[in-house]
Design a protein around this nucleic acid. Structure first.
Lengths: 360, 360
DNA sequence: CGCTCAATAGAAAGCGTTGTCCGGAACCTA
DNA sequence: TAGGTTCCGGACAACGCTTTCTATTGAGCG
């Protein structure tokens, strides 16, 4: 609360000391202390030393809030993610954090659990904090309403000299003041599907999420394009969509399929985590990977190398995604061109793919 | 920068609007707007509506910094962790974040990569931000100097009406103003080791980190105590210490051992991640798990269920650790008793342990 | 020896809120 | 109808810092 003049602080020596305390102890003015701390103005050597001693003695720590209020910039960025426990997200978060820290920025985190309402609330909080940039990490549900709201947010942030940064989700359209760093969902899925087809697979079970989710949209499109390009007829019954991005979901979908008879030779799992569940389901059905069923994933998280057989998947540069996003947002030159980067993805061949059982 | 009176803002309509703009548009005073936003003082229905309309129209967002300066409390907590990508840490981070969000607090993150200097810098940043509490997550290097510095920090934070919270590391001693939420490293390791011994294992390879690291200290102590209690003689050559907590390190240590001949029947890996590497090394040496070598881990991260065979390990309630820490720090009653909680751990039996090969 | 100029330090306004103190209007009660 | 209440709304100091703007040196120089 605002303390009145005559209201004497009860615990003088156990208070957080302010710049004023330092100034008094050092026998200089507030301005001088401020300048010593900032180091942006000439201060005589002797004075500087005196002030620094006082700072150490009082254990003085500048108050960011006051600084932000008086000075201007915040040196704070915020990022918003579905769930920090997802290994792919975690890598992106790590990239953001490292790169931001290197620029002297500190990160605010918020998680949404995939709930757009919580996402909105989180953005609001970061706006209150006057974050220099707000990073939205991971795919999004693409609806007209959602997009409209995002555009609104992008404009608001821009007006506040902040920046909306979309990591791993598509652009909101030209002219919208947002920075976009995507990776190639469609291309990776195309390459991976092509590989599967080239190995002889024709009946491939696709296990993925909601097609309105941008990540699914891209990967699914790549899969379909590869099938079309290589003239493989697509059986629409071989799509298990609207799955969750979880091991349990992958296990369940594949178990259910398998209990109704095996009518596919390979599984395209939309994420490595789903692939892990799928692989367990295949084993539990008494089948082997890749002899009976081949499996591929997407993301190349650490799990992919720990699975047995190790998982053939698509490498996504999540950490670099985060780093690139920070660079684009914080190092942006005066001419604030809308940046749009597309990071490449590539297939990592491991041991979970073989020739179809039927061929052998 | 501080704008002088006569300095006219160049972009009036594209500025972040302030409470003053809202007040003018609604035709009321600043105080009234503040009260509508805070909702802590009676305001006539009609006035309130008018103000709310103005807020929406101007897209007004309160400035946390100003609020913190004028008002007092911050509704911000900070946490510091080695690496957000560690699944165990990630779970703890998730717990902290969820519980903090529920209390309307937002989280600041910083990572240290295990570097004490960076940890110090991070704490400094959180102090500048006037975080309501600072959570240190994960084990620590226990040296007298380090502890002394931590005690200093605990006192500083306490003086600033903040709070140091130690999650998963031991107390700094009685009378130090810090909150501690630990889990039982020693007990879990004791139970797990006992299980291994009860299955007939006598020669157990222990793969772990630096014994000065508190996590290692505890787990190692539990292991030794079990061996002693069950009268198994300990071969000091069967300790691979100072390993990193990584898959690569686990793989390398076990590979090296195996290349010199197999003189153990089981591996006690200090973390599940190390166990994953160890398991791969055993396989690559042409041996099987658990027929030739049994393996156990610690942490019960998701990987443990994905490994084949699935990993027998100790469950650590990381998420609850984070939640409990927030509760202890933020809901602390007026009587600020130093809290110290010890969360239980328990063995999870899976498939990576069998009888020693020699018995069969 | 008076002048200018650089180097350094101080005074004070302003940043956007909150909370306290006060005043005026409407509403009772006697 | 006079005197209290109760409700509401406004004025304003204070929060801790940055950043002009202004003042005081002492040195260099013609």
């Amino acid at each position: 609360m605002a303390r009145r003049k005559n209201d004497v602080p009860d615990d003088l020596d156990h208070r957080q000391s302010t710049i004023k305390d330092v100034a008094e102890l050092a026998g200089v003015s507030l301005s001088t202390v401020s300048r010593v701390v900032a180091g942006n103005y000439p201060v005589a050597q002797s004075t500087r030393v005196r002030v620094q001693r006082a700072i150490r003695e009082l254990n003085y720590v500048a108050n960011t809030h006051a600084r932000a209020l008086g000075g201007g910039s915040t040196r704070t960025v915020g990022f918003i993610v579905n769930d920090v426990r997802g290994p792919a997200f975690a890598a992106a978060v790590h990239g953001v954090e490292q790169e931001a820290a290197q620029r002297g920025h500190i990160c605010l985190v918020a998680t949404t659990d995939g709930d757009p309402a919580r996402e909105l609330a989180a953005i609001q909080l970061m706006r209150e904090q006057r974050a220099a940039a707000v990073f939205l990490i991971g795919g999004a549900w693409d609806s007209a309403a959602y997009r409209a709201r995002m555009i609104d947010i992008a404009r608001s942030l821009d007006a506040a000299k902040s920046r909306l940064v979309l990591c791993g989700r598509p652009s909101l359209g030209p002219g919208i003041p947002a920075t976009v760093v995507e990776y190639d969902n469609e291309g990776g899925a195309y390459a991976l599907s092509s590989y599967l087809i080239s190995r002889g697979h024709r009946r491939i079970l696709y296990v993925g999420g909601d097609p309105a989710f941008t990540t699914t949209t891209g990967r699914l499109a790549g899969f379909r394009r590869a099938m079309a390009d290589m003239a493989v007829s697509v059986d629409e019954s071989l799509f298990e969509l609207d799955a969750e991005f979880s091991r349990a979901s992958g296990y369940e979908r594949v178990s259910d399929r398998l209990s109704g008879g095996r009518d596919f030779t390979a599984i395209f799992a939309e994420t490595d985590v789903i692939a892990g569940g799928a692989m367990a389901a295949v084993y539990d059905a008494g089948l082997s990977v890749p002899d009976d069923v081949s499996i591929v994933g997407y993301d190349d998280i650490p799990l992919a190398t720990d699975l047995r057989p190790s998982l053939t998947t698509v490498h996504v540069p999540y950490e670099e995604l985060g780093r690139a996003a920070v660079r684009a947002a914080l190092d942006r030159p005066v001419g604030r061109a809308e940046r749009h980067q597309l990071l490449g993805t590539h297939v990592i061949l491991r041991q979970s793919v073989g020739r179809p059982a039927i061929d052998r």
